[in-house]
Design a protein around this nucleic acid. Sequence first.
DNA 1: GCATCCCATAGCTTACACTA
DNA 2: TAGTGTAAGCTATGGGATGC
Length: 287
Amino acid sequence: MFDSTYVNDSIGMHAPHGPYVAAFDGFFGNAQEESRFRQQRLGVYFLSDLFSAGYMGKTDYVKDKELVTLARDKTMTFTGETFDQWDLDVLIHCVMRTPTSGGGSEKVRIDPGELLRAVNLRNYDMNRERVFSSLWRLHMGSMMIEGKGYRYMTRLIDRVLLDQRLGSCLVEVNQDVVTSIRHERNLSLDMENRRCFKRNGLAKWLHGAIMSFKGGFVAEMECLRALCGAPDRSRHAFPARLTKALDVMSECDAIRDWQIDGDKVKVVPSCTRRDGTACGYISPSLF
DNA sequence: GCATCCCATAGCTTACACTA
DNA sequence: TAGTGTAAGCTATGGGATGC
């Protein structure tokens, strides 16, 4: 069943290339510039409320929702079912298994049971259904990044084929996402850390933040809360959640040190290089 | 060895009450 | 009225037992 003839009919759109492989050289200048444009930085995905700090929580359908990001010169909007850290676990699992030798889009077979074991969850009907739902959300959700003079439309997973008879699926992750996440990262170690955090969505979100800010970061509490998508109504509970999450990360050796000083939070990852890698700063001026 | 079920427990979210 | 504290309800987890 997992034959190329089955994966060519995507989502009703005839797409011999990936969804945004430019078929017209010259619009973006040379090929190198085009490549730079297409590959988003890790922070675009991890330092925003695209993947909120929840875990297997309630999802909402949103249309053109403006995401909270650190980007000053572009805006990001999202349409689809909202994502949380469970969806990010599913995405990273798929990225880890995507072969990169071909250079173009590569498909990978995903076994829900294996995925669930990899993230420390039980392999039973409800959780397997959650894997399929997450893949559906990751495929259906679309982002638009709008900068000076351009709009960039993309999605995280290009194609999903679900084999209901075998209970497994074939997934084609957006090649730019694969490139961004795998760039300079030891994904096995990242997944080991995330597994250790169990269902603490905020710890997983913060882990994503230190994947982007390799030298750690200093953040204002309120900005951090907005960035990780924590709702306004739970504002008063956020400091306690943050302390708990940082404790969990510290116990799992994902961070070397952390401090909460008034409304400022400082996080130093375990793998900080001692070559002067810059520490990130998250403040209201960036919003 | 793996999947599933049952039950007690823990954690998170949300609604409501209270206070400045 | 906005911010904060608390408790109830919901849901997933962990451990043990059982079946395939």
